[in-house]
Design a binder for these strands. Sequence first.
RNA 1: GGGCGAAUGGCGGAACUGGUAGACGCGCACGACUCAAAAUCGUGUUUCGCAAGAAGUGAGAGUUCGAUUCUCUCUUCGCCCACCA
Length: 844
Amino acid sequence: MSRYNFKSVETKWQNYWEKNKSFKAKINPSKKKFYCLEMFPYPSGKIHMGHVRNYTIGDVLARYKSLQGYNVLHPMGWDSFGMPAENAAKQNNLDPKKWTEENILNMKTQLKKLGLSIDWEREISTCNKDYYKHQQAFFLELYKKKLVYRKENYVNWDPVDETVLANEQVINGKGWRSGAVVERKKLSQWFFNISKFSQKLLDGLEKLDNWPNKVKTMQKNWIGKSFGCEIDFKIEGNLPVKNIKCFTTRPDTLFGFSFLALSVDHEVSKYFEDNKDFLIFKEECSKTGTTEEAIAVGEKIGFKTNLLAVNPLNPKQKVPVYFANFVLMDYGFGAVFGCPAHDQRDFDFAKKYDLEIKTVVRPHDKDEKFRVDKEAYPGPGILINSNILNGLRAPENSILETIKILEKKKIGKKQINFRLKDWGVSRQRYWGCPIPIAYDENGKPYPIPRSMLPVELPENIDLNVKGNPLDNQNNWREVTINGKKLLRETDTLDTFVCSSWYYLRFCSPNETEYGFKKDDIDYWMPVDQYIGGVEHAILHLLYSRFFMQALSHDNDNFNILEPFDGLFTQGMVCHETYKDPDDNWLSPDEIENIDGKKYLKRDKTKAVLVGPSESMSKSKKNTVDPENIIADYGADSARLFILSDSPPAKDVQWSEEGIISSFKFIQKLWKLNEKILKEINKGHKQDFDNEISKFTNKYLKKVHDNLENFSYNKIIANLYEMYSFLNKQIEKAYTKPTLVENYQKILVAMTPILPHFANECLSLIEAKNLSWPKYDVSMLKEEAIKIVIQINGKKRGLVQSKPNINEEKLFEIIKNDEKIKKYLIQKNIKKKIYIKDKLLNIII
RNA sequence: GGGCGAAUGGCGGAACUGGUAGACGCGCACGACUCAAAAUCGUGUUUCGCAAGAAGUGAGAGUUCGAUUCUCUCUUCGCCCACCA
């Protein structure tokens, strides 16, 4: 008996695939295509277990589809622009480009060791000018279509680092690097007009049948469509303000109106620019940051103006106008009408400033005397104290009726509002795709002509400056267009732009004229199965969908509206956490197991505190390096284990025991393989029975069904069952053709999971023409079945029978059965329920 | 505060449209081999009970001959969003 040498076998097959270009994808109109894509990685330097899981899941599918006869496109690339490179370069005085390229090389080697079926000839990297050149062209294309524009917008500003921070980089109101309190600052930024497609992006979700509902609802909520009404309020006071528009979803509560609140950025604020108190108030508001959860919990504050707003349905009523910190400028009109009785936020505000709280809706189970007291009542009911609206049912007909009245009086109209905001793509960063725009001395933007693309990033520049390093590159900034001296835009594009179209590029990775070739995308797109983490459920997936909308806008040549036909979101990889007695995190390789307990390796008298399993992170040190795992146990073991323990959609817990047992199982399969080879060579003259063929068929059906449903964990269970069956059954003597036929089918069905091992075994039985084995339905039928006997719904016995037995016959058998008989003595049988070949329930 | 989802042995998880709960794995126990250990192989492993048997899928109700699966109420946990007018 030889030991399975995974090192030589895995290297052998990886070299074989590379030499034979086994996974090269070529257009072939006579074959059905399958585009299998996993979210491409950021080249941080090393692959992590999350990558191993993501790419293994994708590889199982790609290999399965390929065996089924599909023409599979399974590419890989690098999302290689972004802050980590810039930060690493800053800290270690390196060139981001060099840093990134080295990382890519390293990670590519690691990925290859996993034995992925990737067409590496299509590899792309977004920081490569051959890639971002086309991205700049797309930017200009959208600019021409007026889907890109510039506007002033608030950003999170780190005053110490002099840079803009993404929302995720603001932690408790402070910059993640500097720790400085983040300010709100107005900057002129480039925007993609994603909100123009709100309705289309919403409608598109309906057709995405192969997307998880969870992701669809997340996108739906993010787009946030709401139905309501815009109301024009007349304003009285000593300022030249005549009207203020508000958006509301509850126009029916208009008689409960008691204040009008404006955003501090509302145009009315211009009349208060010299008002000291207002400026102090505005300052106060900006301190709360832009996106903090604290805002929601935070106190509502207001600044009272001397303006009065008139209730359009009750002109005698005039209420004060405030500026308030809770009103957002970029939703609705930056102004809200306050109805404290039926909105908790308005209620809090009214309590604080002692404003009227007028109840205008009573719950169905309360009478006219109902008054809102301790908290707002936002629920359904009947309108009261509302003059002409009294008696209407809220919300069933009250909202529409009110809108009708307002429309008739021309003081309001029906409106649909979306929460989705335009996508700000400007980043004050060096390591990103330059925006192909230049400005004249008046700040007027000019697009860089296509012939001058790409706008290349200058290399080897000093990054250790405050703010955006590109601002200091005066030589680079100067550009002459049509004889005009201009200065380049120094902002670079958000890296999400790079990942919004990379799947198109994989179809035509070498096309030079444009981002893709029409023939290529016509054949390969859309992506049939996209696989990645849920963390991208909103932004990346929505931006990609937007990009397709934008490209097809006013363009008859491009009609892909949804880039990803199928989406699968996999769970995270978790590991137990460990701490030493001094409360410091410990990594798994600092720990030793002694008698089932965990001790410090360097001091074995000290016990280790074992914490809950959490997603692998550097800060908690509960990471495991895939490189070591592959070196110690092999890629097939790693693949087997990462798939075995949990359904792919859920989190999986990595454990030492788990990977070891997977490793051992492959050794067992190898021993079984030798046993089978021996049996094949024995040349038995006759088959002992046909159990082995029946088993193979049943097994193939299970594996097939589980592959189709992403139940990859169950396939591993099937594998174990297969092992124990064959291990016992094989010795009963089968002829060579029977053994080879069945074993070959089993091995082919194993290749998606254990590609190296299965291919090695297949070569040993000299298998040719490998394609996915179909199961024979007629072989699935059972000759003997087990029927459950229940008395009053409780299981009391199990009877073996031939299929298609009728109720009477079955009852004849069981009424004499020892186990059942005793329950039936001296009992009247009221009823019998028989589910054919499955179950007989006797009611007594 | 809003939305979505989940809850099954010591653990990860099975159970297709309601029909044998706990497949498969880990862990554990016992046994075989061994001077011994590791490795390997075998047996067992939901709980209570010597057994017959009984209970049992977060809690409580309901529908049903029959509920892990369907309905309602509640609890806990997870994820997403967050002053959205």
